[in-house]
Simulated assay, not measured.
Amino acid sequence: MPEQQARRVPGTDIPLEAITLGTSALGREPGGERLARELVSGRFRQLDTSNEYAGGRSETLIGQVIGDGVTVFSKADRDPGTGVFDGDRVMRSFEETISRLGVSTLPVYHLHDPFTITVREAMAPGGAVPALVALREQGLVGAIGIAAAGGTLVEDYIRTGAFDAVLTHNRYTLVDRSAEDILRLATERRMLVFNAAPFGGGILSGSPRHASRYGYRPISPEFGRHVEKVRELCERWGVALPAAALHFSLREPRVHSTVVGITSVERLKALDALVDAVIPDGFWEELEALGAPPPSPVD
C-alpha cells in the first residue's frame, strides 16, 4: 500500500488508517449480520456509517458486533420525517447513534447532506454546526466534519473554518477531478480528508451493471470515451481497473483515508488484493498524459 501522511484523528489518540470501510449498504440486504461480523474482524478496522443508513440498521448491526480495536465514524442526519436539521436534531441524531453503536463518544462526527438548510441557517445560533461544536467541546466527539454531495456546498462549509474533517465522494477518482478545490481548501486548513467512492459508483469496479453510469448518474458520450481510454491503458499495463482506481486515491497525499463501500463479504475479501496490487510508476505517467478528464455527471 502506498505510504500516506501519518495522521491521527484530531482530538483523539486514534491513528487514521488509509482504508475506511463504508457501510451504507449494510442493513439493506439479507445477511447483514454476517457482513457486519466480517467487517469488524478483518484486516481493515475502520468503519464509516451514518444515522440514516438503512434507517439506522447499519449502526445497529455494527453495535452488535463491535469490539476492541475497531474505530467507527458516523454522521448526523436530518429528521427523516420532517427534514428538520437544527441543533436539537443534531443532538438527537447523536444520541440515537451512540445508543445503537453502544459507545459513549465518537472520534469523527460529520454533518451529513444538509440539503434542507442553508449554510447560514446551519451556522446560526441553535443551528446544526453550533451543536456539533458543542459536542466537540464536551469531548463527546473528537473531530467534526462535513460530508455531503455537491462540490460548492462542501466548499462553502469548509470556508466557515468550523470543521476538522471533510468527506467527499464520487468527485476525486481515476476519471474525475471535480473535488480538486475541496482538496485544496481542506489542505490549506490542515483538515482531515476522507475520499469516498473511488470506484465512482461501480463504473471503475468493472461492474457491467454500472458501465453507463458514474456517481449513479448516466454518463455523457465524451465521459464514456475517456473512461474507455483509461480502461485501455490499464489493459496495456496489465493493471486491473479497480486496483488502479483504488490506488489513485491511496497515492494522493492530500487524502488521508479512502472510504470503500462494502456491499458483500465477497467484496470485502476482494479488497485485500486491490490494496496489495503494485501499480508501475509508468502507468501514472501515461494516465497524466491522457489529460484532464471531461466533466463528470456529478459536477
Rank of each mutant, 00 (worst) to 15 (best):
residue 6 A to D: 06
residue 6 A to R: 12
residue 7 R to T: 10
residue 11 G to E: 07
residue 14 I to P: 03
residue 16 L to G: 08
residue 16 L to R: 10
residue 18 A to R: 15
residue 21 L to W: 03
residue 23 T to M: 10
residue 24 S to H: 07
residue 25 A to C: 02
residue 28 R to A: 13
residue 29 E to W: 13
residue 31 G to Q: 13
residue 34 R to W: 02
residue 37 R to I: 00
residue 40 V to M: 03
residue 42 G to T: 00
residue 46 Q to R: 11
residue 49 T to N: 11
residue 55 G to N: 13
residue 56 G to V: 07
residue 60 T to N: 00
residue 62 I to A: 04
residue 63 G to M: 06
residue 66 I to S: 03
residue 68 D to A: 14
residue 71 T to I: 15
residue 78 R to Y: 02
residue 82 T to F: 05
residue 89 R to I: 08
residue 89 R to P: 02
residue 90 V to P: 03
residue 93 S to L: 10
residue 97 T to R: 02
residue 97 T to S: 15
residue 101 L to Y: 00
residue 102 G to E: 01
residue 103 V to R: 10
residue 104 S to D: 14
residue 105 T to C: 07
residue 106 L to T: 01
residue 106 L to E: 01
residue 108 V to L: 15
residue 111 L to T: 04
residue 118 T to V: 11
residue 134 A to M: 10
residue 136 R to E: 03
residue 138 Q to D: 15
residue 145 G to Q: 07
residue 149 A to R: 13
residue 152 T to D: 15
residue 153 L to Q: 09
residue 160 T to N: 12
residue 168 T to N: 09
residue 176 D to N: 13
residue 180 E to A: 14
residue 182 I to G: 11
residue 184 R to C: 04
residue 185 L to W: 08
residue 185 L to T: 02
residue 187 T to K: 06
residue 192 L to H: 06
residue 192 L to V: 12
residue 193 V to T: 03
residue 200 G to K: 06
residue 206 G to L: 00
residue 207 S to F: 04
residue 211 A to T: 12
residue 211 A to M: 06
residue 214 Y to I: 07
residue 215 G to P: 05
residue 215 G to V: 05
residue 222 E to D: 12
residue 224 G to D: 13
residue 229 K to N: 06
residue 231 R to V: 03
residue 232 E to H: 08
residue 234 C to K: 07
residue 234 C to L: 07
residue 236 R to H: 11
residue 239 V to I: 15
residue 240 A to T: 03
residue 241 L to A: 04
residue 241 L to Y: 01
residue 246 L to N: 02
residue 248 F to D: 02
residue 250 L to C: 08
residue 253 P to K: 11
residue 254 R to H: 09
residue 256 H to T: 11
residue 261 G to D: 09
residue 272 D to H: 13
residue 273 A to V: 08
residue 274 L to V: 00
residue 274 L to R: 07
residue 282 G to I: 03
residue 285 E to L: 11
residue 286 E to H: 14
residue 288 E to A: 15
residue 288 E to R: 14
residue 289 A to W: 00
